[in-house]
Write a protein that binds this DNA or RNA. Sequence first.
DNA 1: ATTATACATCGTAATATTGCAATAATGTAA
DNA 2: TTACATTATTGCAATATTACGATGTATAAT
Lengths: 111, 111
Amino acid sequence: MGITKTELFSEVDNQIALAAKAFAHPARVAILHYILKTNACINSDLVQELGLAQATISQHLRELKDIGIIQGTIEGSRMNYCINPARWEEVRALFLGVFDQYLPGSPGGCC
Amino acid sequence: MGITKTELFSEVDNQIALAAKAFAHPARVAILHYILKTNACINSDLVQELGLAQATISQHLRELKDIGIIQGTIEGSRMNYCINPARWEEVRALFLGVFDQYLPGSPGGCC
DNA sequence: ATTATACATCGTAATATTGCAATAATGTAA
DNA sequence: TTACATTATTGCAATATTACGATGTATAAT
């Protein structure tokens, strides 16, 4: 159907899935990389950097903002997007929590 | 359009986006958690564990297998899915590479 | 005031994803 | 062989996502 049965899953699983969507499209990863590199960015820069239309980038930025991983402050007629440190750490912790459940030297009782 | 313009983005960004899709749906996160917990699993177990139809779970398992993060070995008429250690480490490294670009005490030159 | 710049939002078209019933395929048990 | 158990695949139907032109809004520049 295309609709996710959110109610079937644990709070953590839903949280991780939500956070993962920030990284689940290369444009958003590229945006994050760009923000991280320049440590501040504006929408019009990204239109040059990536080859996507302004409306498309604005949409991706909004998704990242909805997820909470970035925040934007108005600077005159420009927007200043940057990482939301608290949320970044939160998302980082969510993923580390998963990754750390399987380490190279895990028991390994099957295939 | 719904089509991702893969050719616009770097190899790494595309790789990360691909890997992120493993975590971008709560059912797949739940499946991974279950595999990690039991360190081996079969499809029918998951049908009990999660509330999804067998066909749906089989489909999610295939996506995880396509991404490479799990592998399945045939055991009689059952399947034994488990983590693919090499790929797991690869994906882990991809994400750590992103997360480590912003640490709590980063420069923070903007908002 | 007019024009330009920078983003956001809306509407829409196209593709992708999710979910499941039905069915196929394969192995096991009787 | 027949019947059963387990998983994969197919074929939809419904929702979600991606992309962009057009338009709206607010500030800045002339």
